[in-house]
């Protein structure tokens, strides 16, 4: 059941980045895409064990902690990209005064 959810999120992220007109919605779709990859790693990586990977006395069957560490790095990188994309959108709005990618491309075509 959760596998289908992951596939739906994946397609939704890519579709949002391609079809949406507003630049901020594209960045939100990029975030959905990154979150989908994170969920994929953690969910399908947690199938190898049964409890959280905290080493206390008597706990033997822990899940694989490596995907969780990898996904921390991936989340950090996603945050950096989102912050950078939002600052770039701020500057684009100051120059072009619109957030719609169609109108920005029309303005560029008109200038030439």
């Amino acid at each position: 059941m959760a596998d289908y959810l992951i596939i739906i999120l994946f397609i939704l992220g890519i579709w949002g980045m391609i079809k949406k007109d507003n630049l901020i919605k594209k960045v939100i779709a990029l975030n959905i895409f990154n979150s989908c990859i994170v969920i994929l790693f953690i969910y399908l990586g947690s199938r190898t064990g049964s409890t959280a990977p905290i080493m206390e006395k008597g706990i033997k069957d822990v899940v694989d902690p490596l995907p969780q560490a990898l996904m921390l790095t991936a989340i950090v990188i996603g945050i950096c990209l989102t912050a950078l994309a939002l600052s770039l959108i701020l500057k684009i709005y100051q120059h072009y005064e619109t957030l719609s990618i169609h109108r920005i491309e029309e303005k560029i075509k008109q200038k030439q």
């Binding site: 890519i14 990029l30 895409f33 990209l81 994309a85 770039l88 500057k91 684009i92």
Partner: peptide, 13 residues
């Protein structure tokens, strides 16, 4: 800035 933003979206995908 627009070129950098294009590059950012395509490369992140």
């Amino acid at each position: 800035i627009l070129a950098s933003f294009n590059y950012l979206l395509i490369s992140s995908l």
